[in-house]
């Protein structure tokens, strides 16, 4: 008893402290991968800085993976992929016709919505960058890169994208390289088309 009790108690304490240096430490993150309030102080840590850099690197690498949208506005045009940096989009398209930003309840950083005439680009904060979380087509004057537009039918969708989609009861979701192309149906007619980053899954 004497030989086990004291070491056991000290072991608990020791393990707790030794875990401080563990590389397995999790970092609380918001949906956008930004360090969160529950560990405000952690935002300043090397761990978080490293995690942020990783997210940024992933964002850049993933810029044109999955389904992408060929956006045109005025004289500018750019291909937008999920999780890519918003800066080149703004440089190519210029100022949007409308802009909205929303702070989350407790986290620092802003979700931003850039609305161009016929489509909208949403971003989430990640370190110093704003990364694309969604592109939403707003009317039937624009099409996806594959040629689908609002007002077409489910059959048109399947002809262009195939039948390998997840039926979510009212919307069909194609997943490619981790991102989602969500097509909302009103009956048999397409009422909305959105490209969504997987960060929105969280």
């Amino acid at each position: 008893m004497k030989k086990t009790l004291v070491p056991a108690m000290l072991l608990v304490l020791g393990l707790t402290l030794s875990a401080c240096g563990s590389e397995e430490v999790k970092v609380i993150e918001s949906a956008g991968g930004q360090s969160a309030a529950a560990q405000t102080e952690e935002t300043k840590t090397e761990e978080t800085a490293a995690a942020t850099e990783e997210v940024q690197a992933e964002g850049t690498q993933a810029a044109l993976s999955g389904y992408t949208y060929n956006a045109t506005y005025g004289e500018g045009s750019v291909t937008i992929g999920m999780d890519m940096d918003m800066r080149p989009v703004l440089e190519a398209l210029g100022e949007p016709s409308s802009y909205f930003e929303a702070a989350s309840c407790a986290f620092q950083g802003l979700d931003k919505i850039y609305t161009y005439d016929h489509f909208e680009v949403d971003t989430y904060p990640s370190g110093d960058q704003d990364l694309v979380s969604s592109v939403v087509l707003l009317d039937d004057l624009v099409t996806t890169s594959e040629g689908l537009y609002i007002g077409q039918t489910k059959a048109d969708m399947e002809a262009l994208y195939g039948t390998e989609y997840e039926d979510k009861g009212g919307s069909c979701v194609y997943t490619l390289d981790g991102m989602h192309l969500e097509i909302v149906l009103d009956g048999d007619t397409i009422s909305s088309i959105a490209y969504n980053s997987s960060v929105l899954d969280q």
């Binding site: 009790l5 108690m9 608990v12 707790t16 309030a37 529950a38 405000t40 102080e41 309840c105 407790a106």
Partner: peptide
């Protein structure tokens, strides 16, 4: 006595390490 010392130390450390939410993000 050892048990109590370890427990108190453990509780103290836990309290010290918990985020305080007194400035900045106070929602917690």
């Amino acid at each position: 006595a050892v048990f109590l010392i370890v427990t108190v130390l453990f509780a103290f450390l836990q309290q010290l390490l918990m985020p305080k939410y007194m400035h900045g993000i106070v929602e917690g």
